[in-house]
Design a protein around this nucleic acid. Structure first.
Lengths: 242, 242
DNA sequence: GGCTCATGTAAAAGCCTTTCACATGAGTTG
DNA sequence: CAACTCATGTGAAAGGCTTTTACATGAGCC
């Protein structure tokens, strides 16, 4: 394991050949281990087997490296969300919840990216490229919300899709931040973050008038919400306490 | 302004007299300015007018100072939430939302505390005192959720209060984290975080079957939910787009 | 007045960031 | 193929932060 990484100059010559990528990978590992705050530029250099000054040939400073990671993170995040949304198949509500799960999965499985993206304190607003990547990711959630909003029962006032998207985002982010990674500093829960978020979203959607007892029958290709109050499922969107 | 703080040794003698408190205040200011990550032990010492080694007489290390601030933050947070909840007056739903607003207000008005509490990466779980303070704060939300749950319309399945509390917490935290402080690195919104959260909570509560068109008439001292589907307000819990 | 101990200081070791002058060698060019 | 150039890496150094250690000060207490 410490073999490819720590190959010394002797075996690789004066020039590294792929330092930028190596630094990004090293930083990713370090952030996963010690958090975005604990990550050190010098450490990354060491892990890549170069002098502490070498990274400056590829990144203006430590923060630019962090931004690059966040950038890449937003791109992967967007890809993951796109895949989870799958253009609303097989039905809008199911796909919508898959997006929520994907959000949590990303936070859990890519803590380093998540950390760089949301917890590193880098000013996303001030970096247009990064901002754009972030908005492309959010655009997936927003597109999903648009589809969902268009499906709202006719009897109910129709919520702005943007607001719905922001609501879903804040729920997902809140759950992920507070309970997301089993890491070290996270609070313990009587249920999985996934279940917590799923119930939250279901209740929210019900509040908007959506029918939320998903059954294989419930394809929303045709308008199957003639009118009237939302159906009340026999049991809520939370399981019986074990 | 830089007068009380930077009083030098000449005017204060060898001993500071109140260094611990001075350091906490200095750290609070520094964190508010430069974030929990940017805050420096040495800076705090400088601001208090003592040598860089002096703080070690009062805090084991930089992290202990951070923990102390988080501790104090949780205490103030608890006090604020308690006051906002006001034991459910004048009615449960109104008081419940006041708690949500208080959450945002705290994040906005005490960014340094909020930062230390939720974004500094200190391991809350590993510090029993801190953990206890954190749980006392959460207990307010939980108590509010208990009261709300007890009020749920009889026709609906009753959600576990703990889960409701976690949902509300995650919404509040999500909104505060993503859009909370106008600081630097936060995303812009087409509405205020307060309005966003209020709408979110209202929709959520409606999803649980609560009547959410709050009018002065709606005191919940008596059971005013005979049965039937939740009333549908003429307009949703979001304003018309301006 | 003299003691003692909490509270500060100075100095030093070790680490990190960042810069600068200089070294290396990969790729290009005649 | 030899010469050149420029991107990429190195070493050293300045400056800052953290933390420890031995020593200084003086406030509170007999």
């Amino acid at each position: 394991m410490s073999w490819r990484k720590e190959e010394r100059r002797a075996e690789r010559g004066y020039h590294h050949g792929n330092l930028k990528e190596a630094l990004l990978q090293a930083a990713l590992n370090l952030i996963a281990q010690k958090g975005a705050a604990g990550f050190t530029f010098a450490d990354a250099a060491r892990m890549a087997g170069v002098s502490p000054a070498a990274p400056y040939r590829h990144f203006r400073d430590r923060e630019e490296l962090l931004s690059s990671i966040a950038q890449r993170g937003f791109e992967q995040f967007e890809a993951l969300l796109t895949q989870a949304w799958d253009d609303g198949r097989p039905d809008t509500v199911t796909a919508f919840e898959r997006v929520g799960k994907a959000y949590l999965a990303f936070a859990r499985e890519e803590p380093a990216f998540y950390s760089a993206m949301f917890e590193s304190g880098i000013p996303v607003d001030l970096n247009p490229t990064l901002m754009a990547a972030s908005e492309r990711a959010f655009a997936i959630i927003r597109a999903a919300a648009e589809r969902l909003a268009a499906l709202a029962p006719p009897g109910m006032p129709r919520p702005p899709a943007l607001m719905m998207a922001l609501h879903i985002w804040s729920m997902s982010h809140g759950v992920a931040s507070l309970f997301g990674r089993g890491d070290a500093a996270r609070r313990k829960l009587p249920m999985s973050p996934e279940d917590l978020l799923e119930a939250e979203v279901l209740i929210y959607l019900r509040g908007l008038g959506f029918p939320t007892d998903r059954r294989p029958s419930a394809k929303d290709s045709a308008d199957q919400n003639p009118s009237g109050p939302p159906p009340i499922p026999p049991s809520g969107p939370w399981g019986k306490p074990k």
